[in-house]
Design a protein around this nucleic acid. Structure first.
Length: 870
RNA sequence: GCUCGGGUGGUGGAAUGGUAGACACGCCAGACUUAGGAUCUGGUGCCGCAAGGCAUGAGGGUUCGAGUCCCUCCUCGAGCACCA
């Protein structure tokens, strides 16, 4: 079953075996069996028009090595691939060409599939998923309806990020420094009716879930920071005289005696109430200016604090002090209470503000004794303590309370506790937990996404259906009605009946959104305005008896939706009765290993966890709470100039071209040999020559000049045998630790030695097995030529014999004062005594000892003898 | 600004506190060749003829011994960026 030729002809070998693996379904995973399961997951790609990028196969090769290694260790391995195919580029292409985005998407998928297959990955192609396939997005829509039913999807007229260039709303996560993540266009604030998912409900669960999963620390930290949980106190400051109470949120209640002013966000409801007539004009002017500024400007100009005194005062509930009230745009209406108690002595921002406007600074925290070490510094400080105190403010660390009445002397932590108790007892405050996490803005005014399967009906119809308890959706709606008002009519959301899923995209003349934020789906009037039978859920385009008018939701879901659950779909991609077959889910549970780019640290990985936790909570899935137990981010491959690859820089490497020149095995090997998997590293076109030569050496070791497989007559060689076992050990351990670069280096060491002395057939067989996960085509070809049974990937992974690693003699390094001076070869069981005896016969070593007094001798068994002299 | 993670030959990178620079690229010399951008052999951190000395961003410290641990600083990268 092999091809007969002399040279390492990867252009023939690789397609041959790729075809064979596909035809024989060599890597098909079964949803049951006595073998232990292993689920290796790659972040599935967006099939862009540009084709596969050289960065894609880095992660895929790593996961493939792991998958093949697990196959060889007897696991039932699931290693699937699919397409995250909804998204903006396909839609923009459609707008430009007038062609339906599905055509372009299909072409791109076809190209991606071919490219990925040309790497010979051990993928179960029978489980391919495509998020734009109605059989798939039927379940994405179904999950949305479950979120809706459980009150986790609602609509709100919300200030959202609107990108005029993209004509679309973006999620908070998609906006970076006031520009769109995709395309880098400016964005602005706009009020629009939007679907929102209540991810904040899951803030604590998302936080707790991070504790026992094996993820990169930086990714966990990013999610923790994004969720932004803080514990603090809500405190009421009464407006003087007799006004309502302004609630502020603080995490530093221990500094409350140091409050010297309050700040309200310009949008705060009490601004008008506290402003005195004399200040009205400039307050109004400030508010107007703040409104005009986009959020970008507001944060950009934040280097200099700005604000205006309202003329009003409020009472500090702890000490009764009268506190001036200011407004300033460094206080955000969207976080906490939209108002703060300012403690300039112990907060940098408040300090900066107080300095600028000459507001008093009152210190109430001092550093605790234990913190002031470093005696020299302390002495200098004490000489000039007056000015030093001023300079060291703001002091933002924890410490001991002063100037705080009965709380004096308490440490920060204890003071917070007691103050919270006091506030709660006397009713002017309560403990509170706040999050930076906002609800997930889930609608997009785009064509190429999953239609949101919701119908809008008038309130009266909705109420009647509920009152009569006769409607198909009675058990599928949230406890609180989701509705909105337009032109005096209140519209209520009801789900499209499940029988009508998938709700497919309508045909339209144009894929362009209107410039006022209406989705392109609104162009399809026939589809948009319909009649629904509330008893059956049937839909009609014409009025009928028993049918009432309804309007379809025109927004589509964001691209993140489809990727929130694809790893579940791989388990049973053809399941018609549910999103995942129960038995399959029980068997596969969740991916054992997940690899993909670090750029998804807070977007995809947070959203997917949210959906998974939800599905688990409501019992739709049951195996595990957290979807991704072990996560790894491969590093980015840069261009050979050290810059990020980009068309404009002209430093893009095309994988097709590399495969044509060097073969997929070389490319796989090279990407793994470049450096540590998680490191950012530059591509080198010359560098690939090294691994290519290595494979040619392997070939030459196995195949003679006539193209015949060698007879491997070499005698068993102790040294080669030991090296082989060292190599088994190293490669096995390195694969487990994902250190593929050093595994490959070890195989190179082996081949360099083997080509000098020759190897026996047994050694030849074992080495091929080690090579197979990395360079599967050449390994499979030589395996077949050795007449070993197909496929090498299923042959039992070799184990090393610890006895063979033992050597007769060991090298002992002789050091004087830690410097290498000589080395000796001794029997490996030699005692320190014997070693010293031999050492003292070495003339070179002795020259460094002559005339010196020996103070100490340190012997590290089998390695080093270090002699310490004066 | 804050929080992480890095800085090792000409290059990519190896090194449980124990011989720094594995492996590879590149380069130099040689062999085989009509030819070499194929292959093979040897060499290749820096200074020095050598003995030896100096070397892991800089400077200190701990240690018999530090790329590795601790402190200060410089620098590159990532994340966060008025979140009270």
């Amino acid at each position: 079953m092999t091809i007969n030729y002399k040279n390492y002809d990867f252009q023939k070998i690789e397609p041959f075996w790729q075809k064979k693996w596909l035809e024989e379904k060599t890597f098909r995973a079964e949803n049951e069996g006595s073998n232990e399961k292993y689920y290796v997951l790659d972040m599935f790609p967006y099939p862009s028009g540009a084709g596969l990028h050289i960065g894609h196969p880095e992660g895929y090769t790593a996961s493939d090595i792991l998958a093949r290694y697990k196959w060889a260790n007897g696991f039932n391995v699931l290693h699937p691939m699919g397409w995250d195919a909804f998204g903006l580029p396909a839609e923009q292409h459609a707008i430009a060409t007038g062609q339906h985005p599905s055509i372009n998407t299909e072409n791109n998928i076809h190209r991606f599939r071919q490219q990925i297959q040309s790497f010979g990955f051990a993928i179960d192609w029978g489980r391919e998923v495509d998020t734009t396939n109605p059989h798939y997005y039927r379940w994405t829509q179904w999950i949305f309806l479950q979120l809706f039913k459980h009150g986790l999807a609602y609509v709100g007229d919300k200030p959202v990020w609107w990108c005029p260039e993209l004509r679309s709303v973006l999620a908070n996560e998609e906006v970076i420094n006031g520009r769109s993540e995709r395309g880098d266009f400016p964005v602005e604030r706009k009020n629009l009716r939007q679907w929102v998912l209540r991810i904040t409900e899951y803030a604590d669960k998302l936080l707790q879930g991070l504790e026992d999963i094996d993820w990169p620390d930086s990714t966990k930290r990013q999610q923790i920071a994004w969720i932004g949980r803080s514990e603090g106190l809500e405190l009421d400051f009464e407006i003087i005289p007799n006004g309502p109470k302004i609630s502020v949120y603080t995490t530093r209640s221990d500094t409350v005696f140091g409050v010297t002013f309050l700040v309200l966000a310009p949008e705060h409801e009490f601004v008008e109430r506290v402003t005195t007539p004399g200040n009205r004009e400039k307050i109004q002017e400030y508010i107007n200016n703040a409104k005009k500024k986009s959020d970008l400007e507001r944060t950009d100009l934040a280097k200099e604090k700005s604000g205006v005194f309202t003329g009003g005062f409020a009472k500090n509930p702890f000490n009764g002090e009268s506190i001036p009230i200011w407004i300033a745009d460094y206080v955000l209406i969207s976080y906490g209470m939209g108002a703060i108690m300012a403690v300039p002595a112990h907060d940098e921002r408040d300090f900066e503000f107080a300095q600028k406007f000459n507001i008093p600074v009152k210190q109430v925290i001092i550093a605790s004794e234990t913190q002031s070490q470093g005696s020299i510094l302390a002495t200098e400080e004490s000489q000039n303590s007056e000015s030093k105190t001023q300079e060291s403010l703001p002091f933002c660390a924890d410490g001991i309370l002063v100037n705080s009445g009965e709380f004096n002397g308490l440490a920060t932590e204890e003071a917070k506790k007691q103050m919270a108790q006091r506030a709660e007892q006397l009713g002017f405050g309560k403990r509170a937990v706040k999050y930076k996490l906002r609800d997930w803005l889930f609608s997009r005014q785009r064509y190429w996404g999953e239609p949101i399967p919701i119908l809008w009906i008038e309130r009266s119809h909705y109420d009647r259906a509920l009152a009569e308890k006769k409607a198909y959706f009675l058990d599928k709606i949230p406890a609180r009605v989701v509705s909105y008002k337009k032109d005096g009519v209140e519209w209520c959301a009801i789900p499209v009946s499940e029988e009508q899923l998938p709700l497919k995209l309508p045909e339209t003349d144009t894929y362009l959104p209107s410039d006022d934020g209406e989705s392109p789906l609104a162009w399809a009037k026939q589809w948009l305005n319909i009649f629904v039978n509330l008893l059956t859920g049937e839909i009609s385009t014409e009025p009928q008896t028993g049918f009432i008018p309804a309007v379809r939701e025109t927004n589509t879901m964001p691209q993140w939706a489809g990727s929130c659950w694809y790893y579940l779909r791989y388990m049973s991609p053809d399941c018609e009765k549910s999103l995942v077959d129960h038995q399959a889910e029980t068997y596969w549970r969740s991916p054992d290993f997940y690899i993909g780019g670090a750029e998804h640290a807070v977007l995809h990985l947070l959203y997917a966890r949210f959906w998974h936790l939800f599905l688990y909570d409501v019992g739709i899935i049951s195996a595990v709470r957290e979807p991704f137990r072990k996560l790894f981010h491969q590093g980015i491959i840069l261009g050979s100039d050290g810059n990020k690859m980009s068309k404009s820089r002209g430093n893009v490497v095309n994988p097709d071209e590399v495969i044509r020149q060097y073969g997929a095995d070389s490319l796989r090997l090279y990407e793994m040999f470049l450096g540590p998997l998680d490191a950012m590293k530059p591509w080198s076109t010359q560098g690939i020559e090294g691994v290519y030569r290595f494979l040619k050496k392997v070939w030459a070791l196995y195949v003679d000049g006539d193209g015949e497989v060698k007879e491997f007559l070499a005698e068993d060689d102790m040294a080669i045998d030991r090296l082989l076992h060292e190599t088994i050990k190293k490669v096995t351990e390195d694969i487990e630790a994902l250190q593929f670069n050093t595994a490959i280096a070890q195989m190179m060491i082996f081949i360099n030695a083997a080509q000098k002395v020759g190897i026996s057939r047994q050694v030849a067989i074992v080495f091929l097995q080690l090579l197979a996960p990395f360079a599967p085509h050449i390994a499979e070809e030589l395996w077949a030529r050795l007449k070993e049974p197909f496929s090498i990937s299923k042959a039992k992974w070799p184990t090393y014999d610890a006895l063979k690693l033992v050597t007769d003699q060991v090298k002992i390094v002789l050091q004087v004062n830690g410097k290498v001076r000589d080395e000796i070869l001794v029997d490996s069981d030699a005692t320190q005594e014997i070693i010293e005896k031999i050492a003292w016969q070495q003339s070179r070593f002795l020259t460094f000892l002559s005339g010196k007094r020996i103070a100490r001798k340190i012997y590290i068994p089998g390695k080093i003898l270090n002699v310490v002299v004066d």
